[in-house]
Amino acid sequence: MNINEEIARLRDLLPASWRMTTSIKSKPEQTEPISSLQILPWAKGAQIGINFRLWRQLPEAERDLLLLHEVSWRQQTKWLQLGAYQGIAATAFVGGIVEAIQGDVTGMAIAILLGTIGINQILRGNKSSQVQVQADNEAIEVAQKRGYREVEAAKALLEAIPDAARLMGRNTPEFTELIRCQNLRAIAGLSKNTIPDAVINDI
């Protein structure tokens, strides 16, 4: 596999709005086939790292869907997206500055506590089953615009999740992966049991 050619191919797979802000780089030192960094307020977009020694062991369809999921997931978890906990973190940050200027130690402590709570909730939400399932669904939608059929894309991602885990030396699926796989089985027509939105939202 030619790394530069694969990166170019993967970039072409992305929608134009993602392509302009997504960076894909070779990361031979990482233990995952694909990884990414949180999109922080000062970052332009998703930064994707790929270990091509592991990456080349996956079929092309699995590679495509893993990339689309990773970028979609990061796009959905931007720190600047409006939300209750983003508001708490921002308010606490501003409040902390004001309290520091005024020399109010108690106020500073409360602001730090609120900020920590807000940030922790943001990070937890970013890894939730709901966000991951939404990223899977969006990845499949984008894949269909690139010539994949819905069932084909769902099956590819369904197979990619455990395959990527095995390449990392992990044979036991994580709970969120089980939820994702069940959702993908339903989309692929391999299971009639869907996961209700209410259940996903609570996880």
Score class of each variant (00 low, 15 high):
residue 77 T to S: 06
residue 31 T to K: 10
residue 33 P to L: 03
residue 45 G to V: 04
residue 12 D to I: 04
residue 103 G to F: 06
residue 53 R to W: 04
residue 43 A to G: 06
residue 71 V to Q: 04
residue 76 Q to F: 05
residue 36 S to D: 03
residue 53 R to S: 08
residue 32 E to G: 03
residue 71 V to P: 05
residue 35 S to P: 01
residue 86 Q to E: 11
residue 91 T to E: 07
residue 18 W to I: 04
residue 97 I to Y: 08
residue 84 A to F: 15
residue 107 G to W: 02
residue 46 A to R: 09
residue 69 H to G: 00
residue 66 L to V: 00
residue 23 S to K: 15
residue 66 L to F: 01
residue 75 Q to P: 05
residue 93 F to Q: 12
residue 43 A to L: 07
residue 17 S to M: 07
residue 24 I to V: 09
residue 110 I to R: 15
residue 13 L to K: 01
residue 78 K to S: 05
residue 46 A to Y: 07
residue 67 L to N: 08
residue 95 G to H: 12
residue 109 A to Y: 13
residue 95 G to L: 05
residue 93 F to T: 10
residue 47 Q to A: 14
residue 73 W to A: 08
residue 47 Q to Y: 13
residue 11 R to T: 03
residue 30 Q to N: 01
residue 108 M to G: 08
residue 77 T to E: 02
residue 87 G to D: 07
residue 72 S to G: 00
residue 17 S to T: 14
residue 38 Q to M: 08
residue 91 T to H: 08
residue 15 P to L: 12
residue 89 A to E: 11
residue 110 I to L: 14
residue 8 A to G: 11
residue 55 W to P: 02
residue 36 S to F: 06
residue 86 Q to I: 02
residue 48 I to D: 08
residue 46 A to L: 06
residue 102 Q to F: 14
residue 18 W to D: 11
residue 23 S to Q: 06
residue 82 L to R: 15
residue 43 A to H: 14
residue 14 L to F: 07
residue 92 A to T: 10
residue 108 M to E: 04
residue 16 A to Q: 13
residue 51 N to T: 05
